[in-house]
Amino acid sequence: MAGDRPRTQINAWQPSVPGIAEVFHAHFTEHAYPAHTHDTWDLMILDDGSVDFALDRRRHGATTGTGSVLLLPPGVLHDGRTVTESGFRKRVLYLETTVLPERLTGSAVDGPVIGDARLRQRIHQLHESLRHAGDAFEAESRLSFVRERLHFHLDALRPRPPGREAHRLAAGLRELLDSRISSGLSLRQAAAVLHAHPTHLIRCFKQTYGLPPHTYLTGKRIDRARRFLLDGRRAAEVATAVGFHDQAHLNRHFTRHVGTTPARYAVTSTEPRS
């Protein structure tokens, strides 16, 4: 019965990641988008169901489970509608033209449905990092790889593997991160200082040290947090002192790294009294 169908659910926010104008998660059962345009790129993955849409007056479709990604360019007329009674669930990133230039519009119009499971996984990981305000450095890193993969499809640009410069760039980035453990820095800032493309910089770092820079920075913050907690400082104070967004952000990463919460760690690590 129509009355038993799930109601429309929407969650939208503006993250503090340069190039992402909006994050939009939705479950639609009956809604149909009228023909419209955006000033941004519309990068969508489906989590459930199927969708039918027209782009520049040509109809297309996409279904969950095919590893497909939908990319709608700015300024091009499009609509969208459900295909089945259960509707569809989608996650969308509205990307500014600083991420993808408008000159790639023609390629996107020719093929708005991209069958690339690897790209879809990267977009999923980006959405996961965008759920937490304190993970902007990770989100920016993941966005750079999404951007690179989209350029591969639209512009036939292949990434350059790390060369002899890898160790120099990696060491330079590690020095920057070590000097900004509490204050942090953006990937864009690091790339500008080291005169390197963001994704190339990340690849050089991972090749040299075995982990991506955002993971390295989180580990350094956790190490500093452990020392502060053992000194008797409160978890809420420690969180901001070492560069986490808030105490919940510290708790999430600390528990994953150490296996217990900061508060329990401080208690269980106290030396026994005689």
Rank of each mutant, 00 (worst) to 15 (best):
L43P: 01
D52C: 08
G115F: 12
S107F: 02
V109G: 00
D52W: 08
V99L: 07
K90P: 09
P34I: 12
V17T: 04
Q125Y: 11
I114K: 04
E128D: 14
I114A: 03
D56C: 03
T29P: 12
L70G: 02
F28N: 06
R149S: 12
H151G: 13
V99N: 04
F152Y: 15
H27S: 15
P112H: 03
G106K: 14
T105P: 02
A32L: 11
S144M: 01
G75C: 06
D42N: 13
G87P: 00
S16C: 11
E30A: 15
S50V: 05
L126K: 03
T64G: 11
T37E: 15
D79L: 01
R91Y: 06
V99E: 06
L100C: 03
A32N: 15
A117T: 14
H127D: 14
P18K: 13
S50P: 00
F24E: 08
L104T: 04
G87V: 00
L143P: 08
D79N: 07
G134T: 01
G67H: 01
H124R: 14
T66K: 11
D48W: 05
L72A: 04
D110C: 07
E148F: 11
R147Y: 07
S50G: 02
Y94H: 13
E96N: 09
R59V: 04
E30R: 15
L55K: 00
W13S: 09
R122S: 10
H36M: 06
S68D: 14
P15E: 09
F137Q: 01
P73R: 01
K90M: 14
D116W: 04
G75V: 03
V17Y: 04
A117L: 13
E30P: 10
R57W: 05
H151D: 13
L43W: 02
G111D: 11
H27Q: 10
D116P: 06
G49C: 00
H25V: 12
V17M: 04
D110V: 06
A21H: 13
E102V: 13
L126R: 07
D52H: 08
R122L: 11
R142Y: 12
S68R: 08
L150E: 07
E138C: 11
A32R: 15
A54Q: 07
L43S: 06
A26D: 08
A35C: 11
F28C: 04
H25K: 14
V76S: 01
G67N: 01
G115C: 10
P18L: 08
R120E: 13
T37Y: 07
T66I: 05
T98W: 05
P15Y: 08
F88L: 01
A32T: 15
L95S: 06
R57T: 10
R103F: 09
G106P: 11
